[in-house]
Simulated scan of single mutants.
Amino acid sequence: MFRIAGNAVTRPLSARVMQGAAGRYTRYPNKLHARGILTLKDHLYFSKATASGAGRNGNVTSTGDAPLDLKLAMPKVAGGKGDGQNPEQLFAMGYSACFLGALQLQGARAGKKEMTDKAKVHATVFLGHPMDPDLEGFGLRVELTVEGVPDDALIQAAHDFCPYSRALKHGIDVKITKA
Rank of each mutant, 00 (worst) to 15 (best):
N7C: 00
N7L: 06
A8V: 06
T10V: 11
T10H: 09
R11C: 12
P12E: 02
A15T: 07
G23C: 02
R24G: 12
R24T: 03
Y25V: 10
R27Q: 14
P29Q: 06
N30P: 04
L32S: 10
R35F: 00
G36Q: 05
T39V: 14
L40S: 08
D42S: 11
F46P: 03
S47W: 08
T50C: 00
A51N: 02
S52E: 04
S52P: 00
G53E: 03
N57W: 04
T63C: 05
D65A: 14
A66M: 04
A66N: 14
L68N: 04
D69E: 12
M74P: 00
K76D: 11
Q85K: 12
Q85T: 15
P87W: 10
E88S: 09
E88L: 11
Q89W: 11
L90Q: 08
F91G: 01
Y95M: 06
L103W: 11
Q104T: 03
L105V: 13
G107D: 04
A110I: 01
K113R: 15
K120I: 01
H122I: 08
T124N: 01
T124V: 07
G128A: 09
H129C: 01
H129F: 07
H129P: 00
D132C: 05
E136G: 15
F138S: 14
E147V: 03
D152I: 08
A153K: 09
A153E: 14
A157F: 11
P163R: 12
Y164R: 05
S165H: 02
G171M: 02
I172W: 03
D173H: 14
I176R: 03
T177C: 07
K178F: 14
A179G: 14
A179P: 15
